[in-house]
């Protein structure tokens, strides 16, 4: 593909943008107590927080795919007013301040809320459980998967699917053999983004799930606590979070590269 060349001056603001984003992260790396790092990260509280974060984020990603992929499929075929409503509902949690997400979950699923009370009466008491962490994370992370997959579905060509249907394939077969393989890279990148977003989830978890070591205190909550107690530990844990996020986002970039479009 041939592209017109950019004017050189664009490099100046672009360079400023890179510095603006990179300097705080690099400053963090300079400030890290490297020598004490292994000890700080090996503390039971840190290990528990990391392990809890990885477990809940994995579960959140699975839930996001299981529920979000079908939603993206339906939205990509929808037109008109209800499609707008559905799309808005599916993306609003992305831009909500996390505390607002937490409050929303609390008034819906809290012990005193109608739905939460009904669940509790049927033996599902979410309050202060690891389940509440997963609910909070899924609420804010699933939209990332929905948006990524829906975008890919809309830009993907329908002709293969139509051809398969003409040749006698049923809807499920077309979905399984044609549509899903076409958008598989988008599903993978959407899942990675959802995982990364869940990893950083803080406000909704704090408001809705609480904070107890090994049960609800994920990595961001442990950092928030350590900031009050011991800044060095907070920075050490932050670096872990930055590295994990960078790996996930870099991985996403790999998935979204489409070999057939690079001619």
């Amino acid at each position: 593909m041939i592209r017109p060349s950019l004017p050189r001056w664009v490099l100046v603001p672009a360079g400023a943008a890179v510095l603006f984003l990179a300097v705080p992260l690099l400053a963090m790396l300079v400030r890290v107590p490297w020598v004490a790092l292994p000890t700080l990260l090996a503390s039971p509280a840190a290990v528990d927080a990391l392990w809890l974060s990885l477990r809940t984020c994995a579960l959140t990603t699975v839930l996001s795919v299981v529920l979000g992929l079908p939603l993206a499929l339906v939205l990509s075929r929808s037109r008109g007013r209800w499609a707008v409503v559905g799309r808005t509902l599916a993306t609003v949690p992305m831009v909500l301040p996390p505390v607002v997400a937490g409050l929303a979950l609390l008034v819906a699923l809290g012990r005193r809320a109608p739905l939460g009370g009904w669940l509790a009466a049927h033996g599902v008491d979410l309050a202060f459980t690891t389940g509440a962490v997963v609910v909070a994370q899924t609420f804010v992370a699933m939209p990332y998967l929905v948006v990524a997959v829906e975008g890919a579905l809309r830009s993907a060509s329908d002709e293969y699917g139509v051809a398969a249907a003409t040749l006698g394939a049923g809807p499920t077969t077309v979905l399984r053999r044609v549509t899903l393989p076409l958008v598989a890279p988008a599903v993978a990148s959407g899942a990675a983004l959802a995982f990364a977003r869940a990893l950083g989830e803080f406000g909704a978890t704090l408001t809705f799930a609480g904070s107890l070591q090994g049960t609800t205190r994920t990595l961001p909550l442990e950092i928030y606590l350590q900031r009050e107690v011991d800044t060095d530990t907070a920075i050490a844990l932050s670096v872990v979070l930055i590295v994990l996020a960078a790996v996930l986002v870099a991985g996403t970039a790999r998935f979204t590269k489409r070999p057939w479009s690079e001619t």
């Binding site: 609390l106 809290g110 012990r111 005193r112 202060f128 904070s211 107890l212």
Partner: peptide, 21 residues
């Protein structure tokens, strides 16, 4: 035997006010 150990005392307060705790 707490179910949650909050970083801010106001977080304890709001969880009791809302009946969550």
């Amino acid at each position: 035997k707490p179910v949650s150990e909050e970083t801010k005392v106001t977080d304890v307060r709001t969880k009791v006010e809302s009946g969550q705790a």
